[in-house]
């Protein structure tokens, strides 16, 4: 299992280190038209740190695997039913995601989790999270050639509103939710996009 405390420590550290920058950024933007918000603004890089930790949580990573098989559980083990991505990300050979997964969670632990349109990324654009370091994942996500021709706004839309993403914070009984509060993630997404989707290597 990926220990939740470790992730939290990492996030906390990132927020601390970047706190000063964030504060400066927040001040700089406070004179604009955007409504004031409680969460301090983050630099793109600091925002990415938050997003990255979310994307590496089992709730997100399990369906963005390096291979062709989704992962399951808080331990991110290969799907025991030998499930494959298939030609459009919804499974194949009669074993589709919706063979077992519903459009909602079910009442008991150890039942298949569910959300609308439960699926993996398309094989042409597999959007792999598993094994990607901070820099590589960031580059991949902002590259339209590798992110499904998504503009920054469309990326933000997916991350902020897609029910499949939101499921990460409401994963049903027996599964750990994404260990970073959703409002922190949402703010980070906004800030990252506002910061032109900056990545860790941009400065170097």
């Amino acid at each position: 299992m990926i220990p939740a405390p470790k992730i939290l420590v990492r996030v906390t550290a990132a927020l601390l280190v970047l706190g000063v920058t964030a504060f400066v950024a927040a001040c700089a933007s406070s004179s604009g038209d955007a409504p004031a918000r409680d969460t301090p603004r983050l630099s793109a890089s600091a925002a990415w740190d938050v997003i990255y930790d979310v994307l590496q949580s089992p709730r997100c990573l399990n369906c963005h695997p390096a291979g062709d098989t989704p992962l399951v559980g808080d331990e991110s083990l290969p799907h025991p039913q030998n499930v494959r991505r298939g030609p459009n990300g919804s499974g194949v050979f009669g074993m589709r995601c919706d063979t077992c997964h519903q459009d909602r969670n079910l009442s008991d632990a150890h039942l298949p989790p569910g959300a609308p349109n439960w699926h993996l990324p398309h094989p042409a654009l597999p959007l792999i999270f598993e094994g990607r370091d901070k820099s590589a994942l960031c580059e991949q996500l902002r590259d339209p050639a590798r992110n499904g021709r998504k503009s920054p706004a469309q990326l933000a839309e997916h991350m902020l509103h897609d029910p499949l993403v939101l499921w990460g914070w409401d994963p049903g009984p027996g599964r750990a939710a994404v260990p970073i509060p959703r409002e922190v993630f949402d703010a980070a997404v906004e800030d990252w996009v506002a910061g032109d989707c900056g990545c860790p290597d941009d400065d170097g």
Binding site: Q81, N82, V92, F93, G94, M95
Partner: peptide, 17 residues
């Protein structure tokens, strides 16, 4: 219905549920 002549590997995917 999806694959009229499945290989062993395809049966392994379709039937392992």
């Amino acid at each position: 219905s999806e694959r009229r002549e499945p290989s062993d590997a395809e049966i392994d995917v379709g039937m392992s549920g």
